[in-house]
Design a binder for these strands. Structure first.
Length: 450
DNA sequence: TCTGGGGTCCTAGGACCC
DNA sequence: TCTGGGGTCCTAGGACCC
């Protein structure tokens, strides 16, 4: 059996932990740049505020109903998330952290008779240790556990629901479930299924998997089998990312090259640091810039440039140089840019790369997809490179000891740390006017009790 | 005025090999 | 008139998820 543990209205719940006044009141959390509403308390949901709604369209509704509004605070949510996940790992090591607010648990070996009580204990303990309410769905496959979680959240008082195999009950549930409410079936795929007269989960469960494969690829076929209680989507444990993206839309539009370069450089620094923290090297960097697609009357432009490296790397200086080179190739002065980003891809792990370099006479290149550069990898170059890499490690070390941004790269621009930061910020920096403190990760933002 | 960010997987088609 | 057969690998684009 699998359990899906899902935090209720996670971002809102994080805010509530440190600000109990928010309990039972309508609360929303906004996306980056205070753009969209991406989390809602139940009270906010019942006001009819949809997921992903643009903030400016709902401003009046929020004001009229005294809805509390928060900018997103990913430092806080990320930290709270890892606390919740650590609680779960106390029960079983077999935890798949599926997203910031969800985890699958493998319940192998647990006594079925005590399942419900065990799950209630998990729920209570997580709440006691972190302050975050969760719902738990249990079933024989991940897809059915998702469904069970949905029921636990909406239709039970306990917040725990078990779908047992071969039950009439499953049939009833699936008959009431629209296909597009099943995990993995979006609106688009739902429409395709409607075309072949499949509307409910029950119809999908009893359909011919081969026909579904034709309609929705092998992914759809797996969903059908999962609905029938055959596990096809195994538990996956944390693996290094295969690509790393950092992108932001700007606080206000940018046209000039220098500002754009500064924004992109900051993204590169963040991405490179993520890359090193998972001990990976990247084989390419892609820079992209775009105008605001919602401003249909303005001239539109969107372009990207990928630069391939002769050898995988994780050195911020070299990545900055490459990103600058890429930006120069795609930058056009006559546009107002709204968003920019970088993607590091074709990642390989550092240890694999080193092993591979020592064993060039084997077929390991094929195994890891790495091809060392035949020409540039001379001893001298390598020595220089090693020195550069040690320099970066030192910067990382200082920043981790003295706080993020203690040492920055010139290309990132001058950090404006004054109290009037809002007015002095470069115009590429994002808007975030309702941010709560980072209660759990910054000494000077600890919760004050009076 | 104002519209997020970060991932993974699958497939078709093109390019290449013998 | 008439143009083989059987593979692999890579990539862009289209899906999906939170």
């Amino acid at each position: 059996m699998y359990a899906l543990v899902d935090c209720n209205n996670f971002y809102v719940s994080c805010e509530r932990v440190f600000n109990p006044i928010l309990q039972k009141k309508p609360v929303v959390v906004l996306s980056n740049n205070d753009g969209c509403i991406i989390a809602r308390s139940n009270e906010a949901k019942s006001l009819g505020i949809p997921m992903g709604a643009p903030m400016f369209k709902y401003k009046d509704l929020l004001l009229e109903n005294n809805v509390m509004v928060y900018s997103s605070n990913y430092t806080l949510y990320g930290d709270m998330s890892s606390r919740v996940m650590n609680c779960l790992k106390n029960f079983t090591p077999e935890v798949e952290v599926y997203s910031i607010d969800e985890a699958f648990l493998c319940l192998k070996g647990l006594n079925k008779n005590f399942l419900f009580k065990e799950m209630q204990k998990i729920k209570n303990d997580v709440y006691q240790w972190t302050g975050i309410p969760v719902s738990i769905g249990i079933a024989s496959t991940k897809t059915l556990a998702k469904l069970a979680n949905c029921i636990a959240k909406k239709h039970t008082r306990e917040g725990v629901y078990i779908i047992s195999n071969d039950s009439k009950e499953l049939e009833n549930i699936l008959k009431k479930t629209k296909v597009e409410d099943i995990w993995g079936i979006s609106k688009r795929w739902g429409a395709r299924l409607h075309n072949i007269s499949i509307f409910t989960g029950f119809q999908l469960k009893n359909s011919d998997p081969r026909q579904i494969k034709q309609c929705l690829s092998v992914v759809g076929e797996k969903i059908v089998r999962e609905l029938n209680g055959v596990p096809c989507i195994p538990l996956e444990f944390i693996q290094p990312r295969k690509s790393i993206m950092v992108s932001r839309s700007f606080g206000s539009m940018i046209s000039d090259f220098d500002n754009l370069k500064e924004a992109i450089s900051n993204h590169v620094v963040v991405a490179a640091s993520k890359l090193r923290s998972q001990s990976s090297l990247c084989n390419s960097i892609c820079v992209f810039i775009q105008t605001n697609r919602f401003h249909i009357k303005e001239p539109q432009y969107k372009n990207s440039k990928e630069i391939l490296f002769s050898e995988p790397m994780q050195n911020t200086f070299r990545l900055l140089k490459a990103s600058d080179q890429a930006l120069k190739l795609i930058y056009r002065s006559k546009f107002k840019y709204h968003k920019a980003g970088v993607i590091l891809s074709q990642l390989v792990t550092k240890t694999n790369y080193q092993i591979n370099n020592e064993m060039v006479n084997t077929t390991r290149e094929e195994k890891f997809g790495i091809q060392p550069d035949l020409f540039s990898n001379t001893l001298n170059n390598r020595k220089k490179q090693n020195r550069g890499d040690r320099f970066i490690d030192l910067i990382d070390e200082i920043n981790s000891k003295l706080g993020k941004g203690s040492i920055t790269y010139g290309a990132q621009g001058i950090q404006k740390k004054s109290k009037k930061a809002k007015d002095l910020r470069s115009n590429w920096q994002m808007k975030s006017y309702h941010r709560s403190p980072s209660y759990t990760t910054r000494w000077n933002e600890l919760l004050k009790v009076s």
